[in-house]
Design a protein around this nucleic acid. Structure first.
Ligand SMILES: [Zn+2]
Ligand SMILES: [Zn+2]
Ligand SMILES: [Zn+2]
Ligand SMILES: [Zn+2]
Lengths: 166, 166
DNA sequence: AATATTTTGTTATAGTGTAACGCAATCTTT
DNA sequence: AAAGATTGCGTTACACTATAACAAAATATT
């Protein structure tokens, strides 16, 4: 067990990922006077079940099991709220959602997505950010939102292609 | 009229963009022994009507007008072919498609998308590519496909926000 | 407690994309 | 040129993703 979740390590302490993410979500929402309702918290917990982006419709059965209404608007509303608080990011190229490991300040994610095991890692890459800002700036373009999603093979899947880390 | 299409210039010679794109498409397909059928060429021409990404369903009426079948599979097949030949890129964050200005060799596009006028510019930014490769490489991640889509305001729309270049 | 605001339930529908199958057109081989 | 193989297209149906609109319930505010 690693003390902190390492990128693409299938045997990291993921229970800790979950509990930390939930704890931080509760803390941030309290601080911001936003309501982390049972549905919202459940959706966040479900998304954090793995490091693989989850589609909105994959959440519905679990919501139903938990006794909630399970129509699309329910889950999309929860996802919208979580996104607005920076707790969740949407992966445009997958139509899916993933928990943000550092939601304390709003930011643009940069994602490495493994084609094989689907594990997805959010980067904070200064060089990438800088290069984008520089390219856009030199053309007089003002950046408002960035989508950077890199698909490929994670280290595990290059050697053990069939492995499926959470 | 500019001799070559400048980024975010609404009054560039766009007829030339179109004719060059079509000419190059014909040339590349001939060279690769791929069939640029009437439907495929029409879809490419429609996409090149502007520098604004076009949704698949926006193409259907024009296909119908031209006397072709206008069911979704028709246009999606054409788009799939054009993408396979690098003649068109898909913008994941918009669910839309745009013509590629330099399809002669396969590449990963990086797109600047104006939120106001929707004009979209494809960049070939070595620094961005390099930064992405470096970040991924240091984590042992092998890149297969990149999605880099930057939304913001182009120079025109920062000063004349309501303008709508082609 | 009364009122306003926010959240959720519910139904319906819009928007995006694909499966599957048969026919037609084109290419390849004889 | 004829026969067979391959590719592209027409057609229908459907899957997946997301939102509009309005009523009911829960919560916050006065
Ligand atoms: Zn984890
Ligand atoms: Zn994040
Ligand atoms: Zn042009
Ligand atoms: Zn391109």
């Amino acid at each position: 067990m690693n003390p902190s979740p390492l990128p693409f390590e299938p045997d990291h302490n993921h229970d800790r990922c979950i509990s930390e993410a939930l704890e931080q979500a509760r803390h941030l929402c309290r601080e911001r006077r936003q309501r982390l309702t049972p549905i919202r918290e459940l959706v966040l917990r479900l998304i954090w079940q793995s490091h693989q982006p989850l589609g909105a419709y994959e959440l519905l059965p679990a919501l139903a099991e938990a006794g909630f209404n399970s129509a699309p608007p329910t889950v999309y509303r929860a996802l919208e709220f979580l996104q607005s608080q920076g707790l969740v990011h949407r992966i445009a190229s997958l139509n899916a959602f993933i928990g943000c490991p550092h939601p304390e300040q709003s930011h643009q994610g940069c994602f490495l997505i493994c084609r094989s095991c689907k594990s997805t890692l959010e980067l904070e890459s200064q060089p990438i950010q800088q290069a984008i800002r520089s390219s856009a700036g030199s053309l007089g373009f003002t950046i408002e939102q960035e989508t950077v999603e890199i698909v490929g093979l994670c280290p595990n899947c290059q050697t053990r292609p069939q492995r499926d880390p959470q």
